[in-house]
Amino acid sequence: MAQAQKIEQSVAPSAQESLANIHALFGSQSSAGLIYDNLPANIRTTICFTARLTKEHASMKLADMDDFAIAKVQRAINDLADALKPLAHRPLKDFK
């Protein structure tokens, strides 16, 4: 029994290794990249439009963008989040 437990413990990867495997599986290098890459296309298009990037950027994975484009995406996400926060989760009657 002790030998079986020892084998199980040595086989289990660390949390860091598990996260690295998940990122590799989905072709992403970061947790933000994993989230961004799995957003619906219309949301990525909105972010890229706000960031003043090209239409091609909306179909790219975050890891495939250069550092300048990634910085613009990050700034656009923060700008949109801050601007939309007061409007989020309001009932429809508030918009009439």
Rank of each mutant, 00 (worst) to 15 (best):
R75C: 07
T54S: 15
Q29Y: 00
K93P: 01
I7Q: 11
E8D: 07
I7S: 12
A58L: 03
D79N: 10
A12M: 10
N42K: 04
H57F: 04
D94V: 06
Q29P: 03
T54V: 07
A83P: 01
I35F: 11
P86S: 08
K6G: 13
L19S: 01
I7Y: 08
L34R: 00
N21S: 12
A15H: 05
A4N: 10
A76D: 04
F26C: 13
K85P: 00
D37K: 01
K93E: 07
T45W: 02
R44S: 02
I70C: 05
A83Y: 03
R52N: 13
Q5Y: 06
K96C: 13
S18E: 15
F26W: 10
F49Y: 06
S59D: 15
L84F: 08
M1C: 11
C48T: 03
V73D: 01
N42C: 11
F49H: 06
K61N: 07
L53M: 08
A12I: 09
H57T: 03
T50R: 04
A63D: 03
V73T: 03
H89P: 01
I7F: 07
G27W: 01
A32K: 02
N38V: 09
A2S: 09
A71Q: 13
A15R: 05
A2M: 13
L87R: 14
L39F: 04
K55C: 09
Q74Y: 03
N38W: 05
T54L: 06
N78A: 11
A41Y: 04
M65Q: 00
L53P: 02
F68G: 10
F95A: 11
A2K: 06
A41D: 04
L39I: 06
Q74C: 12
N21C: 10
N38I: 10
G33T: 04
E17C: 08
L80T: 02
T46Q: 04
K93V: 15
S31M: 09
A32L: 14
G27E: 08
M60A: 14
A12K: 08
L25E: 11
A81F: 05
D37M: 05
F95C: 11
Q74S: 11
D64M: 06
L34V: 12
I22D: 08
D37T: 06
I22M: 13
L39G: 00
I47P: 02
T54I: 09
A15K: 05
F68N: 12
A58Q: 00
Q74N: 14
F95V: 08
A24V: 05
A76Y: 01
M65T: 05
F26K: 09
K93Q: 14
T50G: 07
S28Y: 00
